[in-house]
Nucleic acid binder design. Structure first.
Lengths: 335, 335
DNA sequence: TTGAAAGCGGTACCAA
DNA sequence: TTGGTACCGCTTTCAA
């Protein structure tokens, strides 16, 4: 059974396709109420739905935005995406997801694909939009927004929290509660999004409190995973058994620290305090529950998509720095 | 700067649009090598990319599939989506994600949207495709696949694990290791996907082992969350303090049980054994690490998308039951 | 090897 | 209030 088109409807209802189109688009004028009724019935009876592709062709609107993730698996992307989808939905846009795996070639490929599909805007999430893509981005001539990431390309708004400030606050929180033997479990130090800024925040807080900061107090890893956290913690304890408090650059890493501490017979928070980063659902599931820096990913995704949609509608938009806060649970010993 | 069209390219290259089209589509004949070279250069120079919308209109191919989730937040959907995207990508399809929030109206709305956008197939994930949508599904006349869910509508293939069998195995695993005082922490009992079948599997395993099964041994909750797990466990211990082993219907619930057990001074696995369900990343992060039934969500998503794409290409496809296995970690006391 | 032209399913302008 | 029609960007058939 072939799909019926506007032509079929027009024929069935004995009117012109122009009339059907007007009724479909609720122009308000251009048809009598009687005609309207009749046509609507015909449409209903035939099970006709307009072809969005044809519509898109004529007014150059695909009603679609693209979202690029390094990987959609994982709590963080999931929550970001959830927020994005909700906002997009409110603006009548569909969301196409793309998994770049952090591969520049794949990224380029996806951008091209999105271009060809005539997306009206792009959210570049969780990664750095390098100048390698500058040409493509300019060519696409649609709004871009980076989300929980950064852009080397000028004029692209960023939606994120101030990572350095948040790390500073987290570290200060530990210091405020009487800790002076701190260490940091970090992700890749060259990661310009979640690596460098968080490390800088940590260092700065130590400096401002006149606490020393040896290189060995910061242990970095290939990624931000549970296993990385475990491993990094082992390294830290090898160098600094005197450590009483740890700042972890992600909740997953913090969970790794908790797990490894437990394995070593170190009690949390009695012997060792831990503060995490992200406030994913995981944070309330650890034992003890994790005190952590909250990034509201759902909200971030939402705001990014909102911004993008505004920009699509021609409004001027600017970068957005979302506020962070420390969510207190039970992993920090408050002296 | 307006986007250039095939017309612009043709004019610039001094050939007809037909020739450009042929070259673009690599038909292999219909142009000389010289023309080809020249046109390709022009295309490159102008930064031209074909308009997929216009292409789609003519050959009725949107190159897009739709995926409906009750909620994309959460580990499970994230991993499913990851697998889906990877397979879709291999078949040159883009993925539009939709968040139904388990709301029938929203679901209907999304189906309609996907219909209008001319998607070539739909994956209905993590939910039950009720007969309410039968009319719409038939009308859309594109392949559907349910993923980690079920369908009331006939002829729609399902990709999932055998939940009842997996639950049976999990329960039997506990029994095999010497436990006879079992209880189950379940999700909604009326949930035809992850509720009923898992409960049945649990009951069956008890029956086959000649163990009694009182209603109070199964505690059900509104959802499958951490908090639900905590709460359900409290209820169980109130009724059955003699319980030595728990089967939880999700890893999150199991994490809740672990957390609550810890709060009550019950040692895991010494006093209480726990087996979970899903094998999400969470399972290795709990302390002790969770023994659990593995569903490979990434693979499931992958297979579902593969199947769907095959179906789109006209092949006959059938339901797929993925194998489960028990991943042994440290939450079960093996006597 | 090439180009002209008829659509694909709609929208929107203009005339009736 | 209506209908006729040009056109959106591309593919494809048919002639040249």
């Amino acid at each position: 059974m072939k799909k019926s088109t506007i032509k079929d409807v027009a024929r069935e209802a004995n009117v012109s396709i122009a009339t059907v189109s007007r009724i479909l688009n609720n122009t308000g004028k251009g048809y009598s109420d009687k005609t309207r009724q009749h046509v609507m019935q015909t449409i209903e009876r035939m099970g006709y739905f307009p072809n969005a592709i044809a519509r898109g062709l004529i007014n150059n609107e695909s009603g679609t935005i693209g979202v690029l993730f390094p990987a959609v698996s994982g709590m963080v992307s999931a929550e970001l995406l959830h927020g994005i989808e909700a906002a997009a939905q409110a603006f009548d846009k569909s969301v196409i997801v793309c998994n770049t795996l952090s591969d520049p070639d794949k990224t380029e490929h996806y951008l091209q694909l999105l271009y060809e599909k005539q997306v009206e805007g792009v959210i570049f999430a969780n990664a750095r939009l390098t100048s390698d893509f500058q040409k493509m981005v300019k060519q696409m001539a649609v709004p871009f927004v980076t989300l929980a990431g950064t852009s080397e390309i000028e004029g692209i708004p960023e939606v994120k929290v101030n990572d350095q400030q948040a790390s500073y606050d987290a570290t200060q929180y530990l210091i405020k509660h009487g800790h002076s033997q701190l260490a940091m479990v970090s992700g890749p130090s060259h990661d310009l999004i979640a690596g460098t800024p968080r490390i800088e925040g940590f260092k700065q807080a130590l400096a401002d409190a006149n606490l020393p900061c040896k290189a060995t107090q910061i242990s970095w890893s290939h990624a931000f995973n549970f296993e990385d956290g475990k491993h990094a913690f082992r390294l830290i304890m090898a160098h600094h058994p005197e450590t009483t408090a740890i700042f972890a650059a992600s909740d997953e890493m913090a969970a790794g620290v908790i797990s490894e501490a437990h394995a070593q017979g170190i009690r949390v928070p009695d012997d060792l305090s831990i503060i995490g980063y992200d406030n994913t659902k995981l944070a309330m599931m650890t034992v003890p529950a994790l005190t952590t820096v909250s990034q509201e990913f759902d909200t971030m995704g939402n705001r990014a998509a909102e911004l993008l949609c505004h920009s699509i509608m021609g409004e001027d938009i600017e970068s957005l720095s979302l506020k962070h806060k420390i969510v207190e649970r039970e992993s920090v010993n408050k002296q």
